[in-house]
């Protein structure tokens, strides 16, 4: 272990990470810590690099320099399968082939646990059943995904990442395009996963107030760098919002949850 105090409780850590698409630099010299068994929200305006950072932490993109550490080990040294056993990823707008059922999809979550031509095991079945139950999809298991509502489909994809049984879940805009009821349902599910199932969850969220209410750790991003990071009550202020989003606002206390609530002026 390095002597750095902040690394001790970090599940995922990015050190001096720069990310580029071709010549275009998206993220420069980013140091980002994801606390273990907490719900971390990445928040920022469009183009602030939220999704790019998430995908890089998921190992789907290689940083142009710097490294990402999972439990103190660089993910560049982890194989694709090892990575998939430990980190589940929900991408933006995933598309399944027409006719694929929820069960078929969730079973794909066992891919990294099965040997090349290995048979379906009891453990595989148990993991899928649990994932379906946690997401409330058990009764819809044999339904084709294309006949489901957006919220149900999103839950099915999350069930697939749960079947991977990794300690970390990375979710890219999981609530975008969902109606309010489904958004609340999904946030409650994340809360349960973190509190009762010891998961570390990182989600890119569009809604600042949603992040403030549900997340335990907020990372405010602006132009590919971290503007502020910490507990919602420490991070969200009129000044921070003006700085990151360029919006004048007042911040009050949420009358229900007691978390900061931003009201644009």
């Amino acid at each position: 272990m390095s002597g750095d105090e902040s690394h001790m409780s970090a599940k995922l850590a990015g050190q001096d990470v720069s990310i580029a698409y071709g010549d275009r630099r998206i993220v420069e010299n980013l140091d980002l810590l994801v606390p273990e068994r907490r719900f971390t929200a990445l928040v920022g305006p469009n183009g602030s690099g939220k999704s790019t950072i998430l995908r890089t932490f998921a190992g789907l993109m290689a940083p142009s320099c710097g490294s990402i550490f999972l439990d103190g080990r660089s993910i560049a040294t982890l194989g694709t399968r090892e990575m998939a056993r430990r980190v589940g990823v929900l991408l933006q707008g995933p598309v399944a082939p027409e006719g694929l059922t929820v069960r078929d999809l969730v079973q794909q979550g066992r891919y990294p646990h099965r040997s090349l031509f290995g048979r379906w095991s009891e453990a595989d079945q148990a993991a899928c059943d649990e994932a379906l139950m946690l997401t409330g999809m058990t009764t819809l298991a044999d339904t084709p995904l294309d006949t489901l509502s957006g919220g149900q489909r999103q839950r099915a994809w999350i069930a697939m990442t749960l079947a991977q049984q990794g300690e970390v879940l990375l979710l890219d805009e999981p609530t975008t395009y969902l109606d309010l009821a489904h958004q609340v349902e999904l946030m409650d599910l994340i809360t349960v996963l973190v509190r009762d199932h010891r998961k570390t969850v990182v989600a890119v969220l569009h809604d600042l107030n949603q992040a403030a209410r549900y997340a335990e750790h907020i990372v405010l991003l602006k132009g590919g760098t971290i503007s502020a990071a910490g507990r919602p009550s420490d991070v969200i202020s009129q000044e921070a919002i003006a700085d990151v989003f360029g919006v004048r606002s007042i911040v009050i206390r949420d009358p229900v949850a007691g978390t900061p609530l931003c009201i644009p002026l």
Binding site: G59, L60, R85, P94, L100, P112
Partner: peptide, 21 residues
């Protein structure tokens, strides 16, 4: 023998990669 791997592949390259393929 490819069957199961083809299902994973048909989810798209990025999703397949995130599943360890």
């Amino acid at each position: 023998l490819l069957g199961r791997h083809l299902v994973t592949l048909s989810l798209g390259a990025e999703a397949a990669r995130s599943l360890g393929q």
